[in-house]
Amino acid sequence: MTSEITLFVNPTAGRGRGAHAAQPAASALRDAGFSVRTVLGADADDALLRVRAAVCAGTGAVIAVGGDGMASLALQAVAGTTTPLGVVAVGTGNDFARALGLPVRDPAAAGRLAARALKEGRIRDIDLGRAGGRWFGSVLASGFDSRVNDRGNRMVRGGRFKYDLAILAELAAFKPIPYRIRLDGGAVREVEATLIAVGNGPSYGGGMRICADAVMDDGLFDVTVVGDCGRATLLKVFPQVYRGMHLGHPKVTVHRVSSIELAAPGVTAYADGEPLGALPLTATSVPGAVRVLCPGK
């Protein structure tokens, strides 16, 4: 393994924490004897081209500095290769890092952990989801939650409260969504649902454990289907998501599958918080798709 490490940095992550986080993370890696090369990029497409070039050139690891969006972008470069991925989580959600047991908003500790993992071979093979030509590590969202994202992304006012405002607006307009789903190539099922979440990992949205029991190396998705709740039921169930307690509600079912076909009118899918495209789509679990730097046992 080469001693040159690629630091993949989002300078705008976490309201500017990305740029500041790169320095202590890089110092921790250099103190451990690694050479560090930083990749920024003019935009996401340019950054991805640059980090893919680093992977092709044989970098020893890619360390993504930022939030879930940056980790997801890095996955597009390292998935299916032998190059391990580390994460310095300084975004607003950090669900991918949390699922791996990595430090959150502590870039020096995350840098030290990455250095130790590289020196001691603490590398774990985990699954990824594949949908619409894109890899995802945490959750593919569709339905009420993705419509909240759609509305929030369209809003030009509201600041950091715009997604709270979007939730209220979507609740006021909410109607159950008619889905057509196919699990593991079986028969097509027609279901009325509030949302359907496809979990490679357990959480999204900064700790909302929508697929709370998902395991990242079992070769299966946890598909959480929240049925045709009314507004009152949805308001009661939704706060329980942060502890995973919603899974016991009679309107909630979970399926463990290796693939799912999803179709519904007027619904956009989001994967790792990033827009993936309109349904229909097929998501497939790919076992051992990426190598990640992880804490020791």
Rank of each mutant, 00 (worst) to 15 (best):
R231I: 03
R209D: 04
D228W: 08
T233D: 12
T224V: 13
Y204F: 15
P202T: 08
V223I: 11
R209W: 04
L234Q: 00
K236G: 12
G206H: 03
D213A: 13
D228K: 14
D213F: 06
V215T: 13
M216W: 10
D217Y: 06
D222W: 04
T233K: 12
R209G: 03
A214D: 12
V215D: 14
R231E: 02
M216A: 11
D218V: 10
S203I: 06
G207N: 00
C211M: 00
L234T: 03
V215W: 04
T224R: 03
D217W: 11
V226K: 05
F221E: 03
G206Y: 01
A214C: 11
G206P: 01
G227K: 02
T233P: 03
V215M: 12
V225E: 11
C229A: 15
G201M: 04
S203D: 06
D222P: 00
G201W: 02
R231Y: 01
A214T: 10
L234F: 02
T233V: 13
Y204C: 11
T233R: 13
D228T: 07
I210V: 13
C229W: 07
R209P: 02
V223P: 00
T224G: 09
G201A: 08
L235N: 08
C229P: 05
C229M: 15
K236F: 09
C211G: 02
V226L: 15
K236L: 13
K236E: 15
V226R: 06
D222V: 09
D228F: 07
I210M: 07
G230Y: 01
C211D: 00
V225R: 15
G230F: 05
R209V: 04
D228R: 15
M216L: 14
D217R: 13
D218P: 09
D228C: 09
S203H: 05
D218Q: 09
D218K: 10
V215A: 15
R231F: 00
D222I: 04
A212L: 04
F221R: 09
G207S: 01
A232L: 15
G205T: 08
M208W: 07
G230N: 13
D222K: 09
S203N: 08
T224Y: 04
L220C: 08
A212I: 07
V226H: 06
C229L: 15
A232C: 08
M216H: 11
G206C: 03
R231M: 00
D213Q: 14
A214Q: 10
I210D: 01
M208F: 12
G227V: 06
R209T: 06
D217E: 13
L235P: 03
V225N: 05
V226D: 01
L220W: 03
T233G: 09
A212N: 10
G206R: 05
G219P: 02
R231G: 02
G205V: 03
D222C: 10
A232S: 12
